[in-house]
Amino acid sequence: MQGMFSRPLLLTLADGREVVQQFRTEPLELDAFKIAKNALGSVVPDAMALENEELFKEGVWAYSFNRIHGNLWVRGIAGKGTNGRIAINKSLGRTMSKGYIADTSDEAVDGRVRSHLEALVVSPLEDINPYRGQLQGFLDNLDQLKNLV
Rank of each mutant, 00 (worst) to 15 (best):
R75F: 12
E29G: 06
I35Y: 09
L72G: 05
G16K: 09
D15G: 06
I68M: 04
S64G: 05
T12G: 02
T25N: 11
F56I: 13
E29F: 14
N71S: 13
R7L: 15
S42T: 14
L11R: 00
A14C: 05
L55W: 07
T25L: 15
T25K: 12
F5K: 10
L11H: 01
D46F: 12
A47M: 04
N71P: 04
E51K: 10
G16T: 06
R24T: 03
F65I: 04
S6K: 05
P27Y: 10
D31W: 13
E54V: 13
R7V: 15
T12R: 13
L40I: 04
L40C: 07
L9S: 12
V19N: 00
E18Y: 07
R24P: 00
R7G: 05
S42G: 09
D15Q: 08
F33I: 06
G41P: 01
K57Q: 12
E58N: 09
A49N: 09
P27W: 10
D15Y: 11
A14G: 01
I35E: 05
V60H: 03
Q22P: 01
I68E: 01
K37S: 04
P45L: 04
W61S: 00
F56M: 09
L9E: 11
N71R: 15
V19T: 02
L28R: 10
M48W: 12
Q21C: 12
E53T: 15
V60T: 08
I35S: 05
E53H: 12
S6Q: 04
N52W: 09
R7N: 13
V60L: 11
E54F: 11
A39S: 10
V19H: 02
V60W: 07
S6H: 05
T25I: 14
I35H: 07
A14S: 11
A49R: 15
L11A: 02
V20Q: 03
D46A: 13
G70A: 08
P45I: 03
A32D: 07
F65D: 01
F23L: 07
F56A: 14
V74D: 02
E26T: 15
A39L: 14
E58H: 11
V44F: 02
Y63I: 00
A14V: 08
T12C: 06
E58M: 14
T25P: 01
D31C: 08
L13D: 06
Y63V: 01
F56G: 06
F33M: 04
A14Y: 08
I35W: 11
K57S: 10
L28G: 01
L10R: 11
D31G: 10
V43Q: 05
L13R: 15
R75C: 10
S6C: 09
N66H: 04
M48R: 15
A36M: 07
Y63H: 01
L30F: 11
L50R: 14
L55D: 00
